[in-house]
Computed example of a mutant assay.
Amino acid sequence: MNFKPKSASIVYYVSDIQRTETFYNETFGLGLERMEGADPFWLQGQLENGLDLIFFEMEGTRGNTPAIVFEVNEGGIDDIVAELADSGVTIVTPVSEAPGGWSADFLDPDGFGLGLWQSGELPRTLKS
């Protein structure tokens, strides 16, 4: 497999986005920004080391949140997910539309949730 992650985000599914915004901005001073494109908005911020924290309001249970999401920087999310599946990796959510692009979820060997996200500006496949 040619995919080598260069960046990652930690994604949390939270029950109350406003409560989360208050806690992380006022208690932790993270300066999360409201991002539009999903209903409701989502929150996003970056730590000094470059790690992104992203919060979506949706049902989440322990074990599927938080999740580490790797960004696909050169395109080809469909190719990467196909290679993962061919390698025996359990695909939880096939490539599907996500805010600003495409995403897919899968499990590591211990059952921990991992994800991929790719900008919609990049090609979904690099194969001709």
Rank of each mutant, 00 (worst) to 15 (best):
G31L: 08
V89I: 09
I68N: 05
L126S: 06
T93R: 13
L51R: 04
E71P: 03
L116N: 06
E97H: 01
I80P: 04
G37H: 10
I77P: 11
S7P: 06
D110G: 10
P123M: 00
E97S: 03
V81C: 07
G29H: 06
R124G: 03
K127T: 09
S7C: 07
L47P: 05
L107I: 06
W117H: 15
G37A: 09
S103E: 14
A104S: 13
G100L: 11
E48P: 12
A104K: 08
I80H: 01
R34D: 00
F55P: 12
M35Q: 12
E59A: 14
F23L: 07
T27A: 15
M1T: 07
S103C: 14
L107G: 12
M1P: 13
F23R: 03
E36I: 05
E97T: 05
T90M: 11
K6A: 06
G111R: 09
D110I: 05
L47I: 04
G75E: 05
W117P: 12
L51A: 06
D78I: 03
F70V: 02
M35G: 01
N25Q: 01
I17R: 10
D39S: 14
F55R: 11
L53P: 09
L114P: 11
F3S: 10
F70R: 06
G101R: 03
E74R: 12
Y13T: 09
V69F: 14
F56S: 10
S7Y: 03
V72K: 08
A38M: 13
L51N: 05
W117M: 12
P94G: 02
G76W: 02
S7N: 11
N73R: 00
K127G: 12
F112S: 11
I54V: 15
A82Y: 00
V95R: 08
G76M: 05
A38C: 11
L122E: 07
V81L: 08
D105K: 14
D52M: 15
Y24T: 02
E48K: 14
T93C: 05
I10N: 03
A82C: 01
Y24V: 05
Q118F: 04
K4Y: 02
Q46A: 10
P66N: 05
W42I: 09
T90N: 10
L84Y: 14
T65S: 15
A104P: 09
E71I: 02
L114A: 11
L114G: 11
S96L: 08
P40T: 03
V14I: 13
S119F: 00
G115Y: 10
G63E: 13
